[in-house]
Design a protein around this nucleic acid. Sequence first.
DNA 1: CAGCATCCACCGGGATACTG
DNA 2: CAGTATCCCGGTGGATGCTG
Lengths: 147, 147
Amino acid sequence: MTTTDAAASAPFAGRTLADHPNVPSSTCSVDHPSSRVIRDVLSRVGDKWSLLVIGLLDERPLRFTELQRRIDGISHRMLTQTLRNLQRDGLVSRTSYAEIPPRVEYASTDLGRSLAEPVLGLVGWAAANHEEITAARDVFDAASDRG
Amino acid sequence: MTTTDAAASAPFAGRTLADHPNVPSSTCSVDHPSSRVIRDVLSRVGDKWSLLVIGLLDERPLRFTELQRRIDGISHRMLTQTLRNLQRDGLVSRTSYAEIPPRVEYASTDLGRSLAEPVLGLVGWAAANHEEITAARDVFDAASDRG
DNA sequence: CAGCATCCACCGGGATACTG
DNA sequence: CAGTATCCCGGTGGATGCTG
């Protein structure tokens, strides 16, 4: 990483590092463009299903089919893919038992559970402000119709 | 909403409502499946650019071109679209001045600023655990090669 | 300068069928 | 039951050109 591209866009720059409690300064230098970090987190949990899987496994370990049954609308293929990515990032652990028929259990790792907390912050925000957003939307759409 | 589909998938269910401080219980009934909430928040900030815009406007108001210059790689079209969505949700305000040449200023609203906080939680998490994730990834990929 | 419309390439993700 | 491979459609988003 060059130092020049850091100036390109650094949203949250003034606050990300200093203000927030659980950000060890050692792992996060000032010249680290937070745009990179944002892309990073989006690529990890920004997709359609990851958060749901994380959320379910945060409660207790589940088997493949249990997950599929609990996540409404997910395809076999996407569940496989999602689990694979999460496992790759160390957020989910996979344990396969050499039985017939095969049994595989997925569980959240410590890292995965640590992710649940900030995610809950977002979920909480969405739940708390859902009404206000809907209202804003209605106002906006009404204005658009007239305009 | 029927009560039956609530059972389908309710990740974070046990914790979303009770545990978290800033979730007014009034706005979030127990039968509200959090999958809905997750889809909600993802549709809002899960896209490629919204978080970056939110982050930049969280610091100070900016004009269209300033935003475009600061967000590396965003196209004219997508910036327009992103801003429009954020404005629609009441996260960003738009003020156009009747001048020639035209000048339009975008600013974060109170609602938008309130979103910044949970987002910072996520960003902080990503920054703090980036190394660990990278390491996990390396291990996983190495294992895949051998396997 | 700010915004909209059109065109098009790409890929996320669903359906399906097959393997261990 | 768990996982892989193939096919294919639709939406996302980039490039470009036109308007006020």
